[in-house]
């Protein structure tokens, strides 16, 4: 075993104690705590004030204004109205949503499978395999775009050649909106599946072995115990991955920017990409800020719903 059980830190064991206990004892009350907790969170909030809150307020102001002749003019809700009536922004949201709906589940299922395989007891080279699966998360943009354009080239790309070799029709990855979305989904999944599987693996290793042994005595096969034990035990980790992936995919920018430029016919234009274009292609920072607030609101609502559904509101 590469992963000695004794490495399990106290904290992790403690994490498995019943939560009621934690809730009850959680926190030391008033007098002794004093200013200490405030001092401890102070660095975070000082940095937060300076480099997040201030810019946020600034861009909130921007979202109600328009740059004209070097001045910021207050234009009320114009930017928001423009966005809600611009079919392109709607389309970019829709694209983002469609990619999200397919990509996040596919990726998490794949990641869970990979993690389960990596968790096989007698597996050798586990470390190397983990590194291999983790690597895509750190690909640099230049390589990313070069390799994917090479693979998914419609006439000479390896993917289409493989399809033809299998007797299938070549796919219009770049010229057909549907397939271009699939291309984006493939790329995103390629980049983040391994990362998620490493996280899920860490969850798998915390499932008590006794559970499997008991199931095995009851005559459950590995497939059945996967669904009966592994999946339910993994729920918290999967939720964690799901929320992070949802936030990430809603902010998707790199893939359409680098791989498809949002095309064909804006079929892969993402919401953040729309904002980026507003800001850096047409210098419309007001519009970009307004759009960013809309997207942030959507992300906040979705995250809240996911948390509610899964844990009754306790994060």
């Amino acid at each position: 075993m590469i992963q000695p059980a004794s490495e399990q830190p106290a904290a992790d064991k403690a994490a498995q104690q019943p939560r009621v206990h934690l809730q009850r004892k959680h926190g030391f009350s008033g007098k002794r705590a004093g200013v200490t907790p405030y001092l401890f969170v102070l660095p975070f909030f000082l940095l937060f004030l300076a480099f997040i809150l201030y810019p946020l307020i600034y861009s909130f102001v921007l979202s109600f204004s328009k740059w004209k002749s070097g001045n910021m003019d207050f234009v009320g809700l114009d930017n928001y109205i423009h966005l809600f009536t611009d079919p392109l922004f709607g389309k970019s949201l829709l694209n983002t949503g469609m990619i999200l709906l397919v990509q996040v589940p596919v990726m998490l299922i794949l990641a869970t499978c990979i993690a389960a395989l990596l968790n096989s007891e007698r597996l050798k080279f586990r470390g190397l395999l983990q590194v291999a699966f983790f690597l895509p998360a750190i690909i640099d943009l230049v390589t990313y775009s070069l390799v994917f354009s090479m693979f998914f080239n419609e006439s000479s790309g390896m993917v289409n050649q493989l399809l033809q070799w299998l007797g299938l029709e070549p796919v219009a990855w770049r010229t057909d909106g549907f397939w271009a979305k699939i291309l984006i989904i493939c790329a995103l999944t390629w980049r983040w599946t391994g990362y998620n599987s490493v996280i899920i693996l860490s969850g798998l290793q915390m499932i008590p072995k006794e559970l499997y042994e008991a199931a095995s005595i009851d005559g459950a096969g590995s497939v059945r115990s996967f669904f009966a034990i592994t999946v339910p035990q993994l729920k918290p980790v999967l939720l964690f991955c799901m929320i992070l992936s949802t936030i990430g995919t809603l902010q998707i920018f790199t893939e359409p920017y680098v791989l498809t430029s949002g095309g064909p016919n804006n079929e892969t234009l993402s919401a953040i990409q729309y904002l980026y274009q507003a800001a850096f292609k047409t210098f419309n920072f007001g519009l970009a800020s307004a759009g960013a607030y809309i997207i942030m609101t959507i992300i906040a609502i979705l995250s809240y719903i996911q948390l509610r559904l899964s844990k009754g509101g306790e994060i």
């Binding site: 480099f51 997040i52 201030y54 810019p55 946020l56 600034y58 861009s59 921007l62 936030i247 902010q251 920018f253 953040i272 904002l275 980026y276 800001a279 920072f285 970009a288 800020s289 960013a292 607030y293 997207i295 942030m296 992300i299 906040a300 995250s303």
Partner: peptide, 11 residues
């Protein structure tokens, strides 16, 4: 939840 693109100019 804040997209990095939002805070670029103020920052």
């Amino acid at each position: 939840m804040i997209p990095a693109q939002v805070t670029l100019v103020p920052l």
